[in-house]
Design a protein around this nucleic acid. Structure first.
Lengths: 315, 315
DNA sequence: GAACGTGCTGCTCATATGAGCTACGTCGAC
DNA sequence: GTCGACGTAGCTCATATGAGCAGCACGTTC
């Protein structure tokens, strides 16, 4: 009422009271005394001020963080943590840089001296590692074999060693590729002492970071390095998302694949048992895969950018 | 803290809580339960959110009314009512129109059936009268004689009669000029039955409207129609403001002048005894006169525009 | 003119809230 | 290791607050 129906004097009065209340932080009783009203009148005027829009309450953050989208994402997908960075999404490189820094900041905030950090391989995870401050003696466990990329990006091994070195914690790493030509080789590799030791640490891992790929050309490094047969086989099997080597269908169900038997990587059950897994997806094209990931219940946190966050919320 | 010092997760949490509290209107206890915190933690986060600027509370009005300036003006000069209209101040004509409508709205809001309205002559008062809706049987009393202007604007008499006619109240008016050549004529006129009757109503007048002039060329109709001697005499006497015929020095003290003896108009004491006198000044040039008027304690309300309001507050 | 509905005011009472206090955990200095 | 300083979490209790209700003035209908 204070705006549409009411007159000028009432609006001015209401605005003065609103200023006293909201900006000066006075109590309604004080205000009532000051203006010669009773506290109920003051309360009603304030209510009217809010309803009519005379008082507008805005929640926003000066920096890159989009608190609005972060909150909605967190709520919508029942996540423990969601961080949405407002950054124009021109190229993947700069996106990874932004998200990596944000993820590093988030992780630094969440990690306690009791935590054990797991790191799956993903380019965004590498970007994060670069921005990660020294953690309080946190042990670091490698969750997947390495993929050799021509762009000189750190392989999973190096990332794990570097983070652990800076943190002063133990590094549980191994030298092995992410995929090998046959299941037997994979089995043999998994039994290698260093691999077995690293994977033996899995039950102690309390926080982990991973990337998300969509099982399409150019949307998953793993897809891009796979053979045509594997690409097709997984497509046939209904694979939609690849969460650092864990395959999910569009509804978030883990999909068992023959390829998985030829990989040196954490599996879905192991990932689920990690208390907090954070993924760092980017690019709106990946929305279906991210949706699958969030529905899977495997992950508990997300660091992403506004465009993808919006795409996820629109579904 | 929630912004500068704290991390991403805390900012997101704080923002979510702030949204729940301020926008959804939930209580702190409810929020604490929802987020698994205790109410003190919630209270502290909300406090941090406000301090850090994460929550911004803004008070503004969508229309022409500038609530911010209105409130400040009202407070600063201890006025009962202040209405500041945000209108670009190109020409006096359109300013009068805007302020007149605003003043009409204010008056309509303030007037009760018990009120008796006094109207002094001023162009802004005429503008107001044009926009005035029918009042609840309000008697109207003429407070000053008429000034004949070539622009065909209603003289005080017509304004009084018209407003009273539309309101259905009694009209206490008289036909007499504002100024006459000598004091004797003025005394005679004041004793005329109709004039005496109107002025006899003064003790009953509860609300009045007047204009403000600055004693300079082009800033006061009265100045402009005065003789060179009167202009100079009043200047010598320290007259700064002319409130519909009541003369004030720059500090707001009523100034007795010889000219006043030749005028048919309410005097300062009579004006002071009216419970609520509202002035409608416009034009930044008049700021010194308006300041004098507000300091005089003769007036209780003001309707003006942003530029003049700012000029007044800057002093 | 009486009965009724409507809108506004200011009350009571249960609940929410903030100020200030204590306990505890952490950190750094000696 | 011990101590003190500091910061934080969560308590108590006086106060602020909102929901809901009763009284009242006014307008409206029959």
């Amino acid at each position: 009422m204070a705006v549409e129906g009411a007159g000028l004097a009432e609006v001015v009065l209401t605005a003065s009271i609103a200023r006293r209340y909201y900006l000066d932080g006075r109590s309604k009783v004080e205000i009532a005394e000051e203006f010669g009203l009773n506290r109920f009148k003051v309360a009603r005027l304030l209510e009217a001020a809010r309803e009519s829009g005379l008082v507008r309450i805005e929640i926003r953050h000066p920096g890159e963080l989009d608190v609005e989208l972060s909150g909605r994402l967190q709520e919508r997908f029942a996540l423990q943590h969601a961080v949405v960075i407002d950054t124009p999404d021109d190229n993947a490189e700069s996106l990874r840089g932004h998200l990596g820094r944000a993820a590093a900041q988030l992780l630094a905030e969440l990690i306690t001296p009791q935590d054990v950090l797991g790191m799956a391989w993903a380019r965004a995870v590498s970007a994060m590692a670069q921005a990660l401050p020294p953690l309080p003696g946190t042990p670091v466990v490698q969750l997947s074999g390495a993929l050799s990329l021509p762009d000189g990006m750190d392989a999973s091994v190096d990332v794990v060693r570097e983070v652990a070195a800076r943190s002063g914690g133990q590094a549980h790493y191994f030298y092995a590729p992410l995929t090998v030509p046959d299941a037997t080789t994979a089995r043999v590799l998994r039994q290698q002492p260093e691999v077995a030791r690293a994977f033996g640490q899995l039950p102690h891992v309390t926080k982990a970071v991973a990337g998300v790929g969509l099982w399409e050309p150019g949307q998953s490094v793993l897809y891009d390095v796979s053979t045509a047969e594997d690409r097709e086989a997984l497509r046939q099997a209904g694979v939609c998302a690849d969460v650092s080597g864990v395959f999910l269908s569009a509804d978030g169900t883990p999909v068992h694949t023959e390829l998985a038997e030829r990989m040196i990587v954490i599996n879905a059950e192991e990932m689920r048992s990690i208390p907090e897994v954070i993924v760092i997806p980017y690019g709106t094209a990946k929305a279906p895969a991210v949706l699958a990931t969030l529905r899977s219940g495997l992950v508990d946190g997300i660091v992403t950018h506004t465009a993808l966050a919006r795409a996820l919320l629109e579904k």
